[in-house]
């Protein structure tokens, strides 16, 4: 039993669970938990975008809600104002988010450390205020509901989100593809370059790596992921609102990423899942559960900065080294 086997088994179990959840979950809990799980998967992409930038490249962005919001508005405005179909609207949303990431990233990644974090917030605030005040187009914080076009329609056959199974599996497949893509990138030379830039950007540039371009690539990929999340969110809720572009949303994504375990591929899902489940369970019991959330955040930063993913990695290593027969344990 080595580390890779344990991890692969864990991932396998997780995938199995996800694919059977619409039928498995209602056996144990209320059916609306399937919807919650969909939401968790969607939001986890936002956390994943934070994770990519912070865990792998060392850049803490506190403004990913901007790209989420553009994905969301691209879909909503595309459908509502431009009469776009499902796929064009999806594409429009993701395009807007990614394009914005290219532009803002080109500026932001010239900065590092605190200045980078600050400017990501500033950029997201600029567009938040624009979205908030541009009511005729965005609906401001009143929100903009819209009716969702079918995913696919040909003659009599119509596949649409109005069918909960379609909705669930579309989300699962899209999110799954995103993680697969991310995993592939992280195992590539570019993924390794991310790590070197995080570890020692001076050394990276001295061995001939274009640190700026590497950081920008990560920023654009992160914007893409956040955009997909936003687009899925719009389709899921048939709704868009400037509320989701506020820096608090960005902050939550950072928290999810940290608690889940930065620098791990699936950490974002764990962190997002844990905190959203906490929210669902606690909010009915204690109206002010947020106080507990705040405490958890602080305790995690102090005692477990590598989050659950870090704890899992340590546990797995411990189990793996125990079960190997007296091998060299360095």
């Amino acid at each position: 039993m080595n580390v890779t086997t344990i991890n692969r088994t864990g991932i396998g179990a997780f995938v199995l669970f996800t694919l059977t959840a619409p039928w498995l979950l209602p056996l144990f809990v209320d059916a609306f938990w399937v919807d919650i799980y969909s939401e968790i998967l969607i939001w986890s992409l936002l956390a994943a975008s934070v994770n990519l930038l912070f865990g792998y490249v060392g850049l803490l962005s506190f403004g990913q809600a901007l790209y989420f919001g553009l994905g969301m508005y691209g879909v909503a405005i595309g459908v509502e104002k431009f009469d776009l179909g499902f796929w064009p609207a999806f594409g429009f949303g993701v395009f807007l988010a990614t394009a914005m990431a290219v532009v803002t990233g080109a500026l932001a990644v010239r900065l590092t450390w605190h200045y980078f974090a600050i400017i990501t917030v500033v950029f997201s605030l600029i567009f938040y205020f624009m979205a908030l005040s541009w009511k005729p187009v965005t609906g401001g914080d009143d929100g903009m509901p819209f009716s969702i076009p079918p995913v696919f329609s040909m003659g009599d056959i119509e596949v649409s989100f109005t069918d909960p199974t379609v909705q669930y599996f579309f989300i699962v497949i899209t999110v799954g593809l995103c993680y697969a893509l991310l995993g592939r990138i992280l195992q590539s030379p570019l993924g390794r370059a991310f790590a070197t830039v995080r570890e020692n950007d001076l050394r990276a540039t001295l061995i001939g790596l274009n640190v700026y371009a590497i950081r920008l690539s990560a920023f654009v990929i992160a914007g893409f992921l956040a955009g997909v999340a936003g687009a899925l969110f719009a389709f899921f809720g048939r709704y868009a609102s400037s509320v989701y572009m506020f820096y608090h949303v960005s902050g939550e994504a950072v928290v999810w990423a940290i608690i889940g375990g930065i620098g791990t591929l699936l950490g974002p899902i764990i962190g997002t899942g844990l905190l959203i489940i906490l929210r669902e369970e606690l909010s009915s019991v204690w109206e002010h559960y947020q106080i507990l959330v705040g405490v958890i955040i602080i305790l995690t930063v102090i005692f477990a900065p590598k989050g659950l993913g870090g704890l899992w990695a340590r546990l797995v290593e411990h189990v793996a080294s125990r079960s190997s027969h007296g091998g060299d344990v360095k």
């Binding site: 592939r184 990138i185 195992q187 590539s188 030379p189 570019l190 993924g191 390794r192 370059a193 790596l209 371009a213 590497i214 690539s217």
Partner: peptide, 10 residues
Amino acid sequence: HGVFKPFARA
């Protein structure tokens, strides 16, 4: 050899 190969396996 270049690092901008996001789909190659390192």
